[in-house]
Design a binder for these strands. Structure first.
Lengths: 123, 123
DNA sequence: ATCGTATATGCGCACTCATGCAGATACGCA
DNA sequence: TGCGTATCTGCATGAGTGCGCATATACGAT
């Protein structure tokens, strides 16, 4: 499936690009994960369910901000809420998020971005 | 640093949160992936190296826009460029990106966001 | 000069956060 | 039982910020 490299230039290879809708959904998922507070919240929720106040304490953010973040994550279907009295206990709704977070954090721990060498290819 | 402080309902056992630096790097990675054009470009680069014009054609975007996206990806260390005459052939520099993209696209293909049931838990 | 690529600037849009307020529920006390 | 208060959560608004795109310009190579 992967085209042979090297000589081909403008000719469109034979591999298939993802569908537009798929790409859009993936971008939206990444956009939701591109926030330190939401990453911490989701990481905490992957360990078990918790409430807004507890998550705010864990993430080091204001409860209202965490509530807004949870609302977005809920609309995206990444977390779900269970009401018990005044508290709302949230939990992760998708197992794929665990893999994405683990890979991203692992990548962040092993990446070496020491030099923003913009012109490493020029001479 | 977050930490003790009273008033925390211990619905979650003690577990370790990722380090602050790790979280920021992961968020930055996700932010770079949170764009349809960059997703298409990276997906194409995972199949082999290609030039700006070819990538622009594949992604359906202007060459200048693709060049700017590639500059950001290059500064982040996600792609690398090899100059050959007038052309610059880019290629993916990190194998972790492949896993992230695959999981995100797979997730996008399997997620069912048909129910933005925001108030599934409310009265 | 032409083509491929990189960079600078302005515009429009979306996002985050902080503030304030409202609804809902639990608790205390007469 | 009835009432008032405190707490938890959700929603709306404004300020500040960053991003992507389009345009124009510059550099390098043939």
């Amino acid at each position: 499936m992967a085209g042979m490299l090297g000589g081909m230039h403008n000719s469109l290879p034979d591999f298939e690009m993802p569908h537009e809708e798929q790409v859009h959904l993936a971008a939206e998922t990444f956009r939701l994960l591109a926030d330190p507070t939401r990453i911490k919240v989701l990481w905490a929720l992957l360990q078990g369910e918790s409430s807004v106040a507890c998550l705010a304490d864990l993430a080091g953010a204001a409860p209202t901000a965490v509530s807004q973040h949870l609302a977005k994550l809920r609309l995206a279907g990444l977390v779900k809420g269970r009401r018990e009295g005044t508290f709302v206990y949230y939990s992760a709704a998708d197992e794929h998020v665990r893999g994405l977070l683990r890979q991203a954090l692992f990548h962040a721990d092993h990446v070496d971005r020491g030099q923003p060498d913009a012109n490493s290819y020029s001479h």
